[in-house]
Simulated assay, not measured.
Amino acid sequence: MTNAIESRLAELGVTLTDAPAPAANYVPFVQSGSTLYISGQISQNESGLITGKVGDDLTVDEGAAAARTCAISLLSQVKAACGGDLSRLVRVIKLTGFVNSTPDFADQPKVINGCSDFFVEALGEAGRHARSAVSAGALPLNVAVEIEGIFEIK
Rank of each mutant, 00 (worst) to 15 (best):
P28T: 15
S43K: 09
I38H: 02
T35K: 14
N45H: 04
S39I: 12
K53E: 13
N45E: 10
A4R: 02
T15K: 03
V27N: 02
A21D: 12
F29G: 06
A67L: 09
A67I: 15
I38C: 06
T59S: 14
E6A: 11
T35F: 12
A4E: 15
Y37M: 13
L75Y: 00
K79T: 12
N3Y: 01
G63S: 09
L86C: 14
I38W: 01
V14I: 15
V27C: 01
T17C: 11
L12N: 03
C70G: 08
F98N: 13
S39M: 10
T2N: 07
R8T: 15
L9C: 10
K79N: 15
E46V: 15
V90R: 04
V30E: 12
G13I: 08
Q31K: 14
E11V: 01
S87D: 13
A67T: 15
L89A: 08
G83K: 05
S32E: 12
E46Q: 11
D18I: 10
T96Q: 10
L49G: 01
E11G: 01
P22Y: 12
P20R: 04
S7I: 07
K79E: 13
S7K: 07
R8K: 11
D18E: 13
L12P: 12
T17I: 06
A80N: 09
G48W: 02
P22H: 05
S32R: 10
L75A: 04
F29S: 11
T69K: 07
L49H: 10
I93R: 10
K79D: 01
K53Q: 15
G63A: 04
S87H: 00
S7W: 00
S34G: 09
A23R: 09
L9A: 03
I38L: 08
V78S: 02
S87Y: 01
G84N: 09
L9G: 09
E11K: 05
D61T: 14
I50L: 09
C70A: 08
Y26V: 14
G97D: 06
P22R: 09
Q41G: 06
A23I: 10
G83R: 06
G33L: 14
P20S: 06
T59A: 06
I5Q: 04
G55S: 08
T51G: 07
D85C: 11
V27A: 09
C82Q: 00
V60T: 15
S32P: 00
S73P: 00
S34V: 05
T59E: 05
R88S: 06
N45A: 02
L49P: 00
P28Y: 04
G55M: 11
Y37A: 13
K94F: 06
